[in-house]
Design a protein around this nucleic acid. Structure first.
Lengths: 188, 188
DNA sequence: GACTATATAAACCGATCGGTATATGTTTGT
DNA sequence: ACAAACATATACCGATCGGTTTATATAGTC
């Protein structure tokens, strides 16, 4: 039970620090200190900082999509409703305490090269979000689920940026109003 | 004439390195080396790395908006056309060599605190882009120029993220198709 | 009770960080 | 021709970077 507790502790601490302070700005020593763990232990579990970042991103992806999907289900019941609910889920996220933008957009900003494993992992997260919304669109009987998902995701990304960079607390509502038009049109 | 050449050289080099490699990942020593300048000279012109970053962001804002506006004017002639052209300008940008996303989104990702001067400067750039599109919307006689500008900017942000994170070369075209709907609706 | 795995603290590595100091040129305007 | 302004190279500062090493302690398993 306590077998993986150290590892979990490191991942959780690293996730919070990376999200709030950034990846390059967060030193391994800081993570070690906050996690209350020896450096040896940290490097027993992760062979490098880059590997830790990748593990953290995988964890964040799981947590984020899980939370997002549960929020969508909470805000809507029918498939059609749930397409709209993605913006309510986004709204809740933007206005949650400690919101610092999208961790994967942030990661891509620090690791700009497209072939960097960290960048690739970020793109993968976006692909999974796309797949999720596409599956919602399919269940709702959208005309072109792939296109609708791409459109709704584009709106979410845009709202996320406005919420973070410009501190626009209503960005999700703006996007929701826009998204409804495409949803309605796709469900004819 | 060569009076400010050192200063200009430093700004240009720093701009390129910050954009391609990131802010925290780019050391002052690297900038000094590439700019072929002594460290003393660099610190005579800029009292700290943070100040240099702020100067670079101001420069980037000027260059970017200037270039963007000229592209918009190149792609469209009437005010109504030019509202659509913002997506052509974005398209050109996304597919230009060396594209690494939006420098201001990237800056906000590294300096997440909303009251950080660097973050504030990024928000200011977004505000100026908003004002520009709003002025286009006013000239085109849009019903609600402020709302239309916010919508179109949200689409541009979303496309920028998709283009950078996911490497989607067609993101601007997706956004253009979406934007046309709001433009048409606003111009009734 | 002995063995193995995992934990610890702390010293240490070379490299780099942002930034300063010093002492010596090289322009530049008058 | 001369002084002020700006340039240079280089050494230096303490702090931190990512990562390793060593020697010791604390678990859980047979």
């Amino acid at each position: 039970m306590t077998k993986n507790s150290k590892r979990e502790q490191i991942i959780n601490v690293a996730l919070n620090l990376f999200y709030k302070e950034g990846f390059n700005a967060t030193g391994v020593e800081k993570i070690r200190e906050v996690a209350n763990v020896s450096k040896k232990t940290l490097y027993n579990h992760f062979k490098s900082k880059d590997e830790l970042i990748l593990v953290v991103l995988r964890r964040r992806d799981e947590q984020f999509r899980n939370n997002f999907m549960r929020a969508v289900e909470r805000f809507g019941t029918t498939p059609a409703e749930r397409l709209v609910s993605v913006f309510d889920a986004a709204d809740e996220w933007f206005n949650s305490k400690g919101f610092c933008g999208c961790m994967f957009i942030n990661a891509s900003a620090e690791f700009t090269a497209a072939d960097n494993p960290i960048h690739v992992a970020s793109a993968e997260h976006k692909r999974l979000m796309y797949e999720y919304v596409k599956s919602l669109a399919e269940k709702a009987g959208a005309e072109n689920p792939a296109e609708l998902s791409k459109q709704l995701n584009l709106l979410i990304e845009g709202a996320t940026v406005q919420a973070h960079v410009s501190g626009d607390r209503n960005a999700a509502q703006t996007a929701k109003k826009m998204g409804k038009i495409f949803i309605k049109s796709a469900l004819n």
